[in-house]
Write a protein that binds this DNA or RNA. Structure first.
Lengths: 159, 159
DNA sequence: TATTGTTATACTCTATAACTATA
DNA sequence: TATAGTTATAGAGTATAACAATA
């Protein structure tokens, strides 16, 4: 009986989570389009914003779950628009450190501001208790899919 | 005070939801890679699986939130692998109806089976009450981002 | 030898515009 | 005229393999 409930819940949540994955990506891409950014470009800016000390290309690729060659192209395009800059690493002459420019920093701040405005409109539909519960449950789900190597690490990134 | 709580919740949930959007997509892409499918290809197979009567190219594009020209390429590639087939619509000679083949149907069933196995491992960490609450809250969020045209409809799809 | 980052290559997705066949 | 679908085109992301420079 309990087992049967789990199975029903899995079926229902599977639909919801797949829909959420597809819809939230589309949603994000739409918001970013106003800034002329793609989702991977935003992902890179976001990682750099959270790490003001800069990232090597390898570390940035890892943070964004991309292979290095892909990251080269993404940083090239961000760099042409002066949203990030590359700087040689004095410690290791093979390495390039990537930093957000002030224009890049300003853009990420604006994007996250518009995201918050949007999200506030949805969240005021929920009670404070419901919002807390949503955070708690999503955090459990998120940490599981992010930590379990079977679940999330990309094959090409796995060591 | 209540306002301040909302703002804090927005800040926290913003981080969680962006992470979820990025991670769940990567996750999905990884699972699909085992079947040689991309996310948009899976999205199309999934829509067709839920609509055994077939979709016109326009209707399928709409269901997948793509423009028609993009859908043409996706269906071309699925068709080359015999996962879907195109068939002229007897009612309207301009129109092509797209159907899942039995191979396509079998593939989508397998994919959703592996998704369920994976999800069950996470969901048994939650109590039945927590699972129900997660469904309820995510449904509210999902319906909001899917229904509000400001929120989700792609500019090129908006009539 | 191993690692860092880039380049070259090939494929997919994405959107716009132009086109055809049909309605 | 309007709609259904395709083709042509251009740009972005993705992964693999090969490479030069450095560790």
């Amino acid at each position: 009986m309990l087992e049967s409930n789990l199975n029903n819940d899995v079926l229902a949540l599977q639909q919801i989570l797949v829909q959420l994955s597809l819809a939230s990506r589309k949603n994000l891409a739409l918001d970013l389009g106003d800034f002329g950014l793609t989702v991977p470009q935003y992902s890179a800016l976001r990682a750099l914003h959270r790490n003001p000390d800069g990232f090597s290309m390898s570390a940035l690729a890892n943070a964004c779950q991309q292979v290095k060659a892909t990251m080269t192209g993404i940083v090239d395009r961000l760099s042409e628009r002066n949203l990030v800059r590359r700087q040689p690493d004095p410690q290791d002459r093979r390495s390039q450190l990537v930093y957000l420019t002030s224009a890049g920093d300003q853009m990420i701040v604006e994007i996250e501001h518009t995201q918050r405005e949007r999200l506030a409109q949805v969240l005021h539909l929920l009670s404070p208790g419901e919002r807390k519960e949503m955070m708690r449950l999503l955090t459990i789900y998120l940490e599981t899919i992010q930590r379990d190597p079977e679940f999330v690490i990309h094959p090409s990134i796995k060591k």
